[in-house]
């Protein structure tokens, strides 16, 4: 029987926004279709297991990004092949920033990116904090944003979502954009964590991994998670609609 292999990369350093929740949802969405999965944690200096299907990376402060930087950059070629091979990568927050070409900091300093995703990042003084809702071609996504980063896409076709409410990470025509997708690598600044709140987005990732393996996914069996996630999405939509959303300036 085929098992889908999931890796959470740098869970200790980049896992500050409940990022293991994203991993749990991927496991759960596979389970709901009768597909087994294994999850491994990979830290600095540890090799990725053979034949990984999905890599998940989370969020952390700048100091943590600096802590994993050398190790992360050393994996650039492997990650580039991983993405080119249509495997699935999901990164949120600081790790998503690092996957781009460069992060320019507010003090004029900059940090080289891993360079496997098509954008540059500028850290801003303006904090973007509050609920966010995003329309992607595959799913309407809700979550919470808390970042100070403005992205510039070097390949505009990689823009994956349009912000409906909230601030987002980049300009998209007259609107704001959130989430970047390059093949099956999907990255952004939406936390919450985002996948438990949005099983439909998790399904995009799970389906991509399954398709590459030639697996035919049956419909998901319903679970209490679905009901709570729907309740949470409805509450967030109502809140955004009724009260607007607040932004905190630093």
């Amino acid at each position: 029987m085929t098992q889908i292999s999931i890796v959470q990369l740098y869970p200790a350093e980049l896992g500050i926004t409940g990022d293991r929740g994203n991993v749990r949802t991927l496991e759960e969405r596979l389970r709901a279709r009768g597909v087994a999965s294994t999850t491994a944690h990979v830290g600095v200096g540890e090799p990725l297991p053979e034949d990984v299907d999905i890599v998940v990376i989370g969020n952390g402060p700048l100091s943590a990004l600096r802590g994993v930087h050398a190790d992360f950059v050393a994996r650039a070629q492997q990650l580039r092949s991983f993405i080119a091979d249509d495997r699935t990568l999901f990164a949120i927050g600081g790790s998503a920033e690092l996957l781009g070409e460069r992060i320019d900091l507010t003090d004029g300093d900059s940090v080289d990116g891993v360079g496997v995703m098509p954008y540059r990042v500028s850290r801003t003084r303006d904090r973007r904090v509050g609920y966010i809702t995003v329309r992607t071609p595959d799913a309407a996504v809700v979550g919470f944003e808390d970042h100070a980063s403005e992205w510039t896409l070097t390949d505009e076709s990689a823009a994956y979502g349009t912000v409906v409410a909230g601030r987002g990470s980049y300009s998209r025509g007259d609107a704001r954009g959130e989430f970047v997708r390059h093949r099956n690598a999907v990255v952004g600044n939406v936390q919450g964590p985002v996948l438990p709140l949005n099983p439909a987005l998790a399904d995009v990732l799970v389906s991509a991994a399954a398709a590459r393996r030639g697996l035919d996914l049956p419909d998901a069996t319903p679970s209490p998670f679905d009901e709570y996630a729907k309740g949470a999405r409805d509450a967030i939509e109502r809140f955004v609609h009724d009260k607007g959303f607040k932004t905190i300036q630093l």
Partner: peptide, 22 residues
């Protein structure tokens, strides 16, 4: 207000939930 977000996290943590009432 965040009862459902909370319930979702609790469910993932394996906590048994009686009622969700925001």
């Amino acid at each position: 207000d965040k009862a459902h977000q909370l319930a979702l996290a609790l469910a993932y943590a394996g906590v048994e939930i009686g009622t969700v009432e925001p």
